[in-house]
Design a protein around this nucleic acid. Structure first.
Length: 438
RNA sequence: GGAGAGAUGGCCGAGUGGUCGAAGGCGCUCCCCUGCUAAGGGAGUAUAGGCUCAAAAAGCUUAUCGAGGGUUCGAAUCCCUCUCUCUCCGCCA
């Protein structure tokens, strides 16, 4: 959520900045509502002040045993007018709030301007893509060839966009997550967290998924759910990313200055309905309703958030370096960034079968956008509470990392070499072969 | 699932219709006193808004005692709904 003060004082600038990311701010509607709000709020508060002082007088008079019917009469007519004014004000505030909650964050000045991903800018590249002297297979063929990846059965169990892994592949998937968690906790100073996978609406509003992106979420009703014909909001939503529960840990809290920065890591499944992505990446593990991710979150002092963003990206990159997987880091352009971000780096891993780089991590600074929604604050140097800055990034998407390993480490005979960094997590196993790596 | 108790400021805790944004204590800040890391005295110490103002300062004002609604001229206090916490019973990985 943007700062309403900034919208009031600097609307042209804000509108221009939002246009860069393809968002048309309803400036006229906003201005009209603001003008009305000002009048109605002043009027409401005036009536409240009258009522308060009259009531006070009644109290004083009564305690002295005086007759109060005169003052009572004076205040009698206030009731209806006050009620009407309060309702009107409430209605205006709600409309303003509705607008505000659906406005995306402003892009940082260093973000390249552009409409879509073709305008993203490569920041750096790491590693050399391996040359293959045989016809390479994509990860689906590799996994199915080893009889360790089974989309057909997954479809029977659940439907499209679900997967089933077995044997050494399931183990490798687990190994990746463990390896990432260990690296981030032991080398990068993150606190490991285990979090709820079902969250309430307040949390989703806090990080920006609600109210705008409900269609992307899976919702859950407790027990038998709403009865016939009855509208009832879902009790919970499945988390689309661990960013939601982790970041919301500081919702409605004031973090002591000396506790900053907070750095959390969590390995969770993520659930996305992928509404609006029909036909995209239908083959394989790339786009699933359920996938695992190791998520990194920083909660920091506002002065330090851009420094933290660079660190965060570096921590995610470190995983790919250790796995010896080639990647590049992209600065997303204004039009390609997510709702809550001021600045985002995507890390894209090399997928030889697609002959391209694919997103495997997305690291964003949200500045105070989420903190404002969450009322997540710290007590500043002057003793006053101020909004924190929040950042999040994947470190990494486990399923997609598995894809990268399968494709980059495949061999001519259909086996897959285990990256050296993962061997300790694979009981010393060298490769996934026809034995299935049991 | 059943029965009961509770939710007040940074913390503890009083307050059951009227100068209550809230006693008292602790903590913290400043000042005074005190010949030494003690004791004492005094003052201050919530948050988010709105309006006036070029702005700052300042002033005026509103809201907030778990959340939302209601009763009332007036609600921390009374009524209703919800959430959460605790205790006991049941069930359970």
């Amino acid at each position: 959520m943007l700062d309403i003060q900034q919208l009031r004082s600097d609307l042209d600038h804000v509108t221009r900045e939002l246009a860069k990311r393809g968002f048309a701010f309803p400036a006229d509607a906003f201005n009209a509502l603001e003008a009305e709000r000002k009048i109605v709020q002043t009027q409401t508060q005036e009536l409240q002040a009258q009522r308060n002082s009259a009531s006070k007088k009644i109290g004083q008079a009564k305690s002295k045993g005086e007759d109060v019917t005169a003052i009572m009469a004076e205040v009698a007519h206030l009731g209806d007018a006050l009620k009407a004014a309060e309702d009107h004000l409430e209605q205006i505030q709600q409309q303003l709030q509705k607008i505000l909650l659906e406005v995306p964050n402003l892009p940082h000045t260093t973000v390249p301007e552009g409409k879509d991903e073709i305008h993203n800018v490569q920041i750096r590249r790491w590693g050399e893509s391996r040359t293959f002297d045989f016809a390479i297979q994509d990860h689906v063929s590799v996994g199915e060839g080893l009889a360790l990846l089974d989309f057909e059965t997954a479809a029977k169990l659940s439907g499209a966009r679900f997967s089933l892994m077995k044997g050494g592949l399931a183990r490798l998937h687990r190994a990746l997550a463990q390896f990432m968690l260990d690296t981030h906790t032991q080398e990068h100073g993150y606190v490991e967290t285990y979090v709820p996978y079902l969250v309430n609406r307040d949390s989703l509003r806090g990080t920006g998924q609600l109210p705008k992106f409900e269609a992307d979420l899976f919702s859950v009703h407790a027990g038998s759910g709403p009865t016939e014909g009855q509208e009832k909001l879902p009790d919970y939503h499945l988390i689309p990313t661990a960013e939601v529960p982790i970041t919301n840990m500081v919702r409605d809290t004031i973090v002591p200055l000396e506790a900053l920065p907070l750095k959390f890591v969590s390995h969770t499944p993520c659930f996305r309905s992928e509404a609006g992505s029909y036909g995209r990446d239908t083959r394989g593990l790339i786009r699933q309703h359920q996938f695992d991710k190791v998520e990194l979150v920083h909660i920091v002092h506002p002065d330090q958030s851009y420094e933290a963003l660079e660190q965060l990206v570096g921590h995610a990159e470190k995983i790919l370096q250790k796995l010896e997987l080639p990647y590049r880091v992209m600065a997303l352009c204004t039009g390609d960034m997510g709702f809550s971000a001021t600045k985002t780096y995507d890390i894209e891993v090399w997928l030889p079968a697609q002959n391209t780089y694919r997103e495997i991590s997305s690291c964003s600074n949200c500045e105070a956008f989420q903190a404002r929604r969450m009322q997540a604050r710290f007590r500043g140097e002057n003793g006053k509470p101020a909004l924190l800055h929040t950042l999040n990034g994947s470190g990494l998407a486990v399923g997609r990392t598995l894809v990268a390993v399968l494709e980059n480490y495949q061999n001519a005979d259909g086996s897959v070499t285990i990256p050296a960094a993962l061997k300790p997590y694979m009981n010393g196993l060298d490769q996934l072969g026809s034995s299935g790596g049991k």
